[in-house]
Write a protein that binds this DNA or RNA. Structure first.
Length: 194
DNA sequence: TAGAGGATTGAT
DNA sequence: TCAATCCTCTAC
């Protein structure tokens, strides 16, 4: 299990990069499901793409201001749940969005939850991967050290296999939308299509 | 308290 | 290209 210190470092962008290759595990509903992280996005309170921009705290995003190592889950477009890992120190407001996984354990269960019949369709985006893993807003604020959800060490991603690009779906962030803070595993089938 | 809009998805 | 769908935030 990855210790709290991993999440509590200052540089959220570095954490987002290092999360690639690690394994997200949930035991929701009594079923073990796990997937290797192949796509992440960093969000810092210093830029407009982030819910916590300008240290703005609301009932929705208050978990982002907890100390690194918590889960931040929120509903988007009234339909989808998005799963984030809170980073940095208490009161900062940084997080990393998990956008795509390569299924490892419980693939049948994940397909059933997502309502699809092809493994490839399970995690083709942040909304669907949350559904497949059983992640709901009940996990908002969960401590990522066992219990229902946590991360494990996986296979590290080599420098040549790592790609950085602009983040998705935050046009409203203006200049900040162009920051190369989306990290993917190059040529990996499971990375979401833009 | 009303109104606008969103870190998405899948069908057209 | 666009609707689904509902919670959250902002302004009045």
């Amino acid at each position: 299990m990855i210790p709290p210190e991993f999440y509590q470092r200052k540089n959220t962008v570095t954490i987002a990069r290092q999360l690639l290759g690690k394994v997200l595990v949930t035991t929701i509903g009594g079923y073990l499901t796990a997937g290797r992280i192949v796509e992440t996005e960093a969000y810092s309170h210093r830029e407009r793409g982030c819910h916590a921009f300008g240290n703005r705290m609301t009932p929705r995003n208050k978990v982002m201001f907890e100390v690194g190592g918590h889960a931040y889950v929120y509903r988007c477009y009234g339909i989808h749940h998005l799963f984030n890992v809170v980073t940095n120190s208490s009161g900062t407001g940084d997080a990393v969005l998990i956008r795509a996984l390569q299924p490892i354990e419980g693939i049948d269960r994940m397909m059933e939850r997502a309502g699809v019949d092809l493994p490839k369709r399970i995690t083709s985006g942040p909304g669907k991967l949350s559904k497949a893993m059983g992640i709901t807003q009940e996990l908002n604020g969960a401590w990522l050290q066992g219990g229902k959800v946590w991360l494990e060490e996986g296979s590290p991603i080599g420098r040549s296999a790592l790609a950085a690009s602009a983040r998705v779906g935050i046009d409203y962030a203006g200049e900040d939308a162009r920051l190369p803070w989306r990290f993917t595993v190059r040529n990996n089938t499971w990375v979401s299509k833009p």
